[in-house]
C-alpha cells in the first residue's frame, strides 16, 4: 500500500456525504483537541501496561474514548492495538500468562473491579472473522439477551428484530430467521455478529479489524453501519487499513511497538501528524 497523505486527506473529507444520520456538526473541525475537552469521556485508560508472560506488550498507554464517537486504532501488525482493544472488555483473560496493569475506567467505574460478565454486556465486541454460532439467525441474536436474562420470549423476539434493523440486516434475513446463520455471506455474517453484539444494548462497541475477511462491498456496508450506530454507542475500531480509519473515525490513535505514539483528531493525524513515526506509517514508509 502506498497512499500519499493527500489521498487520505481526501478520504477524510469524503466521509461527510456518506449515508447515515450524523449531522455535519459531528465532523470534528481542525481544532479537534479543543473539541475533545468538551466531549464526555466514556472510557479512560490510564497507565496501562500489558505483559504476555515476560514480554512487555503495551507500555504506559493513556487513552480516552469520547462518547458517541468512533475512535480508530491503527498501526502495523504486532503493535499492540488488538491487545489493547481486548483489554477494554477483559477478553485478554482468555490468554494464560497475560497480565494487565494500570486502570481502565468505564463511566467512573474501574472495569478491573467489575464482574466480568456485567462488563462484557456493557462493552460488546465484534471479531476479525465473522464467528456466528452454529445456530439459526434468530438464535444467534437471541443468545445474548437470553443468557443475560433480558425478558421473556416476546421481548427477546422484539430485541432480535430491533438489533437486525440496527445492523441493517433485517431486510435481507427477515424471511429466513430460523435458517442456519452459516447460510449467509461473509459480509452478512459479520453484520449478524454486530447485531448479536447490539442485542444486549452495549454502551461501547469494540471492533477488531471487522472487515479484514470481507470483500469491498461487505466492507462498505459495515462502514455505513458504523456511522448510524455511533449515535447509540461509543465505537472503538482496530484496523490495519488506514483508508478505513480515515473514512470512518472521528479520532485516531497510532500504535507502534506497544506504545501509543500519537492520538488526535483523525483529520489532523492524516494531514499534519505531530510525530515522525506517524507520518512514516501513513505515508507508507513502513508497516
Amino acid at each position: 500500500m502506498d497512499p500519499s497523505s493527500g489521498d487520505l486527506a481526501k478520504a477524510v473529507d469524503a466521509r461527510t456525504p456518506l449515508p447515515g444520520n450524523h449531522s455535519p456538526a459531528d465532523t470534528p473541525g481542525g481544532i479537534g483537541s479543543d473539541q475533545m475537552k468538551v466531549q464526555t469521556m466514556k472510557l479512560k485508560a490510564s497507565n496501562v501496561n500489558f505483559f504476555y508472560g515476560g514480554f512487555h506488550a503495551l507500555h504506559e498507554i493513556n487513552l480516552q474514548f469520547s462518547a458517541n464517537k468512533i475512535t480508530a486504532l491503527i498501526g502495523p501488525s504486532g503493535c499492540g492495538k488488538s491487545t489493547f482493544l481486548r483489554s477494554l472488555n477483559r477478553l485478554h483473560e482468555t490468554i494464560r500468562g497475560a497480565r494487565l496493569e494500570g486502570t481502565i475506567v468505564l463511566d467512573n467505574e474501574n472495569i478491573l473491579a467489575m464482574n466480568a460478565s456485567a462488563l462484557r454486556r456493557r462493552v460488546g465486541m465484534v471479531f476479525q472473522r465473522p464467528n456466528p454460532f452454529p445456530k439459526s439467525i434468530f438464535d444467534n441474536i437471541a443468545y445474548g439477551p437470553e443468557i443475560n436474562g433480558m425478558g421473556n420470549h416476546q421481548h427477546v423476539a422484539e430485541l432480535v428484530e430491533q438489533s437486525l434493523i440496527r445492523a441493517a440486516l433485517w431486510e435481507e434475513v427477515k424471511d429466513k430467521l430460523h435458517q442456519s446463520a452459516y447460510g449467509l455471506s461473509g459480509g452478512q455474517q459479520q453484520r449478524l455478529c454486530i447485531a448479536r453484539a447490539l442485542a444486549v444494548n452495549p454502551e461501547v462497541l469494540l471492533l477488531d479489524e471487522p472487515c479484514s475477511a470481507l470483500d469491498p462491498i461487505g466492507t462498505a456496508k459495515i462502514e455505513e453501519l458504523l456511522f448510524t450506530l455511533k449515535d447509540q454507542c461509543t465505537i472503538v475500531i482496530v484496523t490495519h487499513n488506514m483508508q478505513q480509519a480515515a473514512r470512518v473515525a472521528d479520532y485516531t490513535g497510532f500504535f507502534l511497538m506497544g506504545k501509543l505514539i500519537e492520538f488526535d483528531d483523525t483529520k489532523k493525524i492524516y494531514t499534519t501528524p505531530g510525530k515522525k513515526e506517524t507520518e512514516d506509517y501513513i505515508t507508507g514508509r513502513f508497516g
Binding site: 477478553l91 482468555t94 460478565s117 456485567a118 460488546g124 464467528n131 454460532f133 443468545y143 445474548g144 443475560n148
Partner: peptide, 15 residues
C-alpha cells in the same frame, strides 16, 4: 469447536 465461538459467547457476557 473454534475458539472464536467461545470468545463470542464470552464477549456477550456468558460465563
Amino acid at each position: 469447536v473454534p475458539n472464536s465461538l467461545r470468545e463470542a459467547a464470552t464477549a456477550l457476557g456468558a460465563s
